[in-house]
Design a protein around this nucleic acid. Structure first.
Lengths: 242, 242
DNA sequence: AAAATATAGTTGTCTATACCAATATTGTTA
DNA sequence: TAACAATATTGGTATAGACAACTATATTTT
């Protein structure tokens, strides 16, 4: 509960981070009333406007809510959080109360086809291709084909397929994951898909295609997954207007 | 380009709305550099901080971007906008460059089944049910079944099925559309679906299920749509971490 | 006891100013 | 002309204070 006025970090930012930490570690639970702006200002010996600047951003992130005449309160958890962590099969299954695992079917470097090269904006045409059978509670759920821009991740080995690949890309290759485009369509299982997924050819599958971008806007990954139609529903919450 | 200092509306809000209007009518296109905060302040004869308050919110909405030492600029259109207006079939098709139309198959008041009653949190069990065949460029695209809470919209007639039903609900019944939950899954066309959609039974269809809530959080509509798998892809952009 | 009133505390809005940091522009020099 | 330096402009941070609008509580009046 201290700030450093001589830090190069802005005061409002220090206060903001302090509050954020209280929220994250649960010290200030949903519904909790924060100290008033004047109390904050006095405690830190800063102007009230500086406190307001710290709080305003957290309010716009919907972590806090302000009520005129009453106070500032910790917001209820956003339903919107369903959107986050959704890229990861592991996270997705965890949220559904299932245990995720996978069987590596294939890992190799290869020449990208035209569509993939275009999506990944490839200079050269080398991609890592990774095919994994995704299991939920040890039962087949999806067949996933990933294509990674090989130029961006030199020396990536087969062991990357196990564990959290995103963490590794962020830590070892210094990228920051930004946004993603996804498309979903209904299709029928091919022979190979059917065999691996344990369904009959022609059974319905949900085809999910995703392109993931770095925070800088560079596409680095393209994934095409076939989910068993009888086991998987894609859920999404749309905050406003739809 | 005027503000009214004696209006009960806050000055920062008036400035904000003025800017918003310039953005919406295209007077200030993407990339356009806004007058500097000091210019604004002088022009309106207000404090620079007041101008900043107006701009800050628009920046947090990603309609504007600020660059230190350079200026404040109109942001490029958000890809995220694909999320908005997505509830409406008409809007969706328009965004895809196609013309939407529909054929009303059924409109009646009926008793809700258990699942629908639960989703809509019905007191009574009356719902309007509306079945519409949705066409894009005059070709069948989806079969849509809507269930509306009848208690909330007394006297709704068959003519509601044509035109923008959301506008009507907002204007005549005073609701404000808030959020929505959607789920997507792959399935196979039933006999009836196949006939209306012009495909063979067992062809892949994308089942989209949506529950729409008012801004106050009350569910008022549940829609189940079957989209032709060969003609429709559901696209979504996930801003961060997604 | 109930109703009206005062009071204190909260966020909301706004001012006028000051200085900092990053960038763009202009002027000067080699 | 090119490189460098000075200046101007822009947004970023921060202050100290003021009054308004709203809420809750305490007090007084009826």
């Amino acid at each position: 509960m201290k700030i450093n006025k001589k830090s190069p970090l802005p005061i409002y930012y220090q206060i903001q981070e302090m509050i954020r930490e209280k929220l994250e570690n649960g010290e200030w639970p949903p519904g909790y009333m924060l100290p008033s702006e004047r109390i904050f200002a006095e405690e830190f010996d800063v102007s009230r406007m500086t406190v307001r600047q710290a709080v305003t951003e957290l309010v716009s992130e919907q972590l806090l809510t302000r009520e005129k005449g009453k106070g500032t309160f910790v917001a209820e958890p956003k339903l919107e959080q369903t959107l986050q962590g959704l890229t990861s099969f592991t996270e997705d299954m965890k949220a559904r109360g299932m245990k995720a695992s996978s069987e590596l079917q294939l890992f190799q470097m290869e020449e990208a086809d035209t569509a993939t090269a275009r999506l990944l904006q490839l200079e050269g045409r080398s991609v890592y291709r990774m095919e994994r059978l995704r299991l939920a509670d040890h039962k087949p759920m999806a067949l996933e084909n990933s294509y990674l821009n090989a130029d961006m991740f030199p020396g990536l080995g087969e062991e990357a397929a196990s564990g959290s690949i995103y963490n590794r890309l962020e830590q070892e290759y210094g990228i920051t994951i930004g946004s993603a485009d996804q498309s979903l369509e209904a299709s029928l299982a091919s022979e190979r898909e059917a065999e691996l997924l344990g369904i009959v050819p022609g059974a319905p599958v949900l085809l999910i295609s995703r392109t993931t971008y770095t925070a800088a806007g560079a596409p680095f990954e393209h994934v095409i997954s076939s989910y068993r139609g009888d086991r998987y529903k894609f859920r999404i919450h749309m905050p406003r207007q739809g």
